[in-house]
Write a protein that binds this DNA or RNA. Structure first.
Length: 215
DNA sequence: CCATTAAGATACT
DNA sequence: AGTATCTTAATGG
């Protein structure tokens, strides 16, 4: 079992300066989530920002009819910039976060953020980069929604999921996919059947396996 | 066995 | 593409 500091040092030495890592350990709270556990829900208070040490987390929005839409995944070394801006205004969360795999997350109190921005150049850069990449992912999500057909969206969904889980075997139901993409089960089934015919995937109950035809 | 639920099929919008 | 409805198949008691 590693201490928090050892863990941060070995994984993020290249990213943060020594003193910052010490500060992160001192003030951050490390929490572990099992797969599929809700980490944050819409409307909950934000007084800390999450820094993902291990695992992957999916971030979704929800409309008033409780329909979901997958926005992006957070992986090791990522933070959620949506939370970031909300934090300084003491706002409530507009997104939902669910552990995709077992995840370790370090929660850093929002009160420290501005202080660290001034004190640590590495933190400043990290936050700015994070903002940038999160924004780009959001633009991609919007783009796919507005301009891509469902078939392409589904394909990207499968590839993304495979990537963050580090496996070609996805344990997921057609219904779950449908709700992540805000579509319906029959439609997803139809498209997956088509993928199967083209030998891009193999299917079993509760399981989709990507073949090596996919890059 | 049977109950539950995922996935397939068909027809209609 | 999406909804409604029915059928079939897998799973776990």
């Amino acid at each position: 079992m590693h201490t928090c500091k050892e863990k941060l040092e070995q994984q993020f030495k290249y990213l943060f300066e020594e003193k910052l890592i010490e500060d992160m350990c001192r003030h951050g709270k490390l929490r572990v989530f099992d797969a599929n556990v809700t980490i944050m829900d819409i409307g909950s208070d934000l007084n800390a920002i999450p820094f993902v040490i291990d695992g992957s987390i999916k971030v979704l929005t929800e409309n008033d009819q409780s329909d979901d839409l997958l926005l992006y995944y957070l992986e090791s070394g990522d933070t959620c910039s949506v939370t970031l801006s909300c934090c300084s205004h003491n706002a409530k969360s507009k997104v939902k976060a669910i552990a995709e795999t077992r995840s370790e997350v370090l929660f850093i109190p929002g009160s420290l953020l501005s202080e660290w921005m001034v004190r640590y150049a590495s933190w400043r850069n990290y936050i700015l980069d994070s903002y940038n990449s999160r924004l780009n992912e959001m633009i991609e999500a919007i783009d796919s929604l507005a301009f891509q057909n469902l078939e392409e969206r589904l394909m990207n969904y499968l590839k993304d999921k495979s990537w963050v889980n580090k496996t070609r075997i996805l344990d997921v139901t057609h219904q779950q996919i449908a709700s992540d993409l805000n579509s319906s089960r029959v439609v997803i089934s139809r498209l997956l059947k088509k993928f199967e015919k083209n030998k891009m995937i193999l299917q079993q109950r509760n399981r989709v396996e990507l073949t090596d035809k996919l890059s």
